[in-house]
Design a protein around this nucleic acid. Structure first.
Ligand code: SF4
Ligand code: SF4
Lengths: 148, 148
DNA sequence: TTGAAAGGGCACCAAAATCATGCTATATTC
DNA sequence: GAATATAGCATGATTTTGGTGCCCTTTCAA
């Protein structure tokens, strides 16, 4: 359904968290506690991200993960690509072969759509993602939240 | 993986075919023959499209399906929505509830992305899809098409 | 030296979404 | 009535995702 997988969501949540937290290193434990997501799966995801050098890992007490580059230089496309292989809207739009391509009448068009969708993800940075949220869902100082 | 399902692809292929063929009614048989896709699945898809009044069905000899409106007035989003429920990039971006939403730090951002992706599909019409293809894979009267 | 903290690796199970198909019924035209 | 074509229904196979357990290695600090 054109939907992102949990892996991607978890990964993005974690990355956004790191981007906002300000700490040097963030451990899986912390993230899991805050975000309420399956620990092992998150670990899995972070590991993949680490392999792709999106984040850096440091073991031992006080260790954890850290972004290797500024949040505004990491596109969602990159993350999704790493976490689920690619962002292609259709098999053929990704180098993948589709048995139907010879008879497929919409290949060209779909490819164009795929390209556009991709560019949406390409243009969206982690910084934006994290930012976007802090606007409406401030955690610190709930203060005197007046209902709208 | 942000990918369209076969149902959508089959549906779009069929619709594009109808849009181009020029005939009054197009039967499942014909489409299956040309497009090399599973007959029953296509029938299923067309039926759904028929229920949604994207196409009109006429039974009996010479019958088949026909678009109910001009191809340039039918967006991919509409078709995909009918064929796979919705186009949401994330559960929450669609009225669906996600158990994580309370702790989710990227909901806002993802929603924005979802919106953009949706608009890509919204802005892409069946006419464009069909057209896109005919440029490079002309079947009928190749005539003296002058490249733009 | 030793123990706790944290990530790394591996293999496997469970659930859900997708894909695909068979068969029969109903409508329509000739 | 015969042939054509869609409508309806249920079910099985496959693929993709989601989720988890167990144990090892590295690192820091008491
Ligand atoms: S667009 Fe056509 S060729 Fe490309 S994946 Fe879909 S069916 Fe296959
Ligand atoms: S963005 Fe957050 S709330 Fe929305 S579906 Fe994904 S995890 Fe759930």
């Amino acid at each position: 359904m054109l939907r992102l997988t949990k892996r991607s969501e978890y990964g993005l949540m974690a990355l956004a968290f790191m981007a906002q937290s300000g700490q040097a290193y963030t451990s899986v434990r912390e993230i899991v506690a805050k975000l309420r997501i399956p620990r092992r799966l998150l670990a899995e995801v972070l590991k993949d991200l680490s392999r792709a050098e999106i984040v850096e890992a440091v073991r031992g007490p006080g260790g954890g993960y850290r972004l290797t580059s500024p949040a505004d230089q990491l596109s969602l496309a990159r993350v999704v690509e790493i976490l689920e292989g690619s962002v292609s809207v259709a098999k053929c739009a990704d180098g993948g072969r589709c048995d139907l391509s010879p008879s497929c009448t919409i290949q060209e068009g779909i490819n164009l759509v795929a390209q556009r969708v991709k560019s949406v993800l390409d243009d969206f940075t982690l910084a934006q993602l994290a930012d976007c949220n802090s606007h409406s869902q401030q955690d610190p100082q709930p203060a005197h939240e007046v209902a709208v």
